[in-house]
Write a protein that binds this DNA or RNA. Structure first.
Lengths: 145, 145
DNA sequence: CTAAAAGCTCAATATAACTTGAGGTCAACA
DNA sequence: TGTTGACCTCAAGTTATATTGAGCTTTTAG
């Protein structure tokens, strides 16, 4: 059974977090072990999370989609507070980091696409640009067409 | 000492291949073990590669830059012959596969960028689009601004 | 002719990012 | 009350992509 959202609940169990972020409990544990998120313990030694952890995990997921490694995500998350909502400034600092990375990646892929587009099977018709060129390969191709 | 290129050499040693592709010998072995490239053996049981292996490895490297997994690269490479230059058709078939994947990735990242751009710290000002939104998180934020 | 360089095989290790499992606690519901 | 489900810890396993090392053979340069 899926529990209804209890919006006013201020502390979340590991199960709550897992469910709401749509990740396994083991992953929540893992992220915590990696220092990406934090928790405290209740009397029963059960983890309790601030609701702000949900945003952190959302950020992690987005960053991962772009191919950023966890340790880099860790670094970027460092500018966000663990236990309260980030200020506009904090948020913008993070966001700018992502934007730059994204732009970089997009530029990289776009270049590759353009190059591939003008590449005729590495017959080296476009020697300077072909991303698949290889000196030896090109020469060999020219020798025995 | 770096050997001069011997363009007319038709069979390459594992060392030749490694040097010309700028990858370690162990990686050449590894790719072969994975079935991405092929070799035959000479009298001394040493691997010998067709020069066309250089193009295959160039393709592997390009594809990896875009974040494509080796097993998918394996599949795409299947349309290229191991022991001769690909025909224009074969090449184009491959190229089209890459193009599609690239386009997909670029589109994905661009979307993400746009979304991130219009996201104000997930105060959920743009509820429908924010890639960082999370129902519980948003509601909580609204409750305690 | 000999010693270094390059090859070979096979097994182990490495890193990232998780997942699974064993064995045990604790609280709520029928 | 007892059993189910959510937690806990800690260790081991998994997949992808290689890299490293040990022990042995072949080639090549001086």
């Amino acid at each position: 059974m899926v529990k209804p959202l209890a919006a006013s609940k201020s502390a979340l169990s590991v199960g709550d977090v897992a469910q709401r972020c749509d990740i396994p409990v083991s992953t929540v544990h893992f992220y915590e072990a990696q220092g990406l998120i934090k928790s405290w313990r209740n009397n029963a030694n059960h983890r309790r999370y601030s609701r702000h952890v949900l945003r952190r995990i959302a950020v992690i997921k987005v960053a991962q989609r772009t191919g950023i490694a966890l340790k880099d995500i860790h670094q970027a998350l460092a500018v966000l507070p663990q236990d309260k909502a980030p200020s506009a400034e904090q948020w913008q600092a993070m966001s700018r980091q992502w934007q730059q990375l994204l732009q970089q990646k997009i530029a990289d892929l776009t270049l590759l696409q353009t190059q591939l587009d003008s590449c005729i099977g590495c017959g080296c018709l476009s020697l300077a640009d072909c991303p698949l060129r290889n000196p030896e390969d090109c020469r060999a191709v020219q020798e025995s067409p």
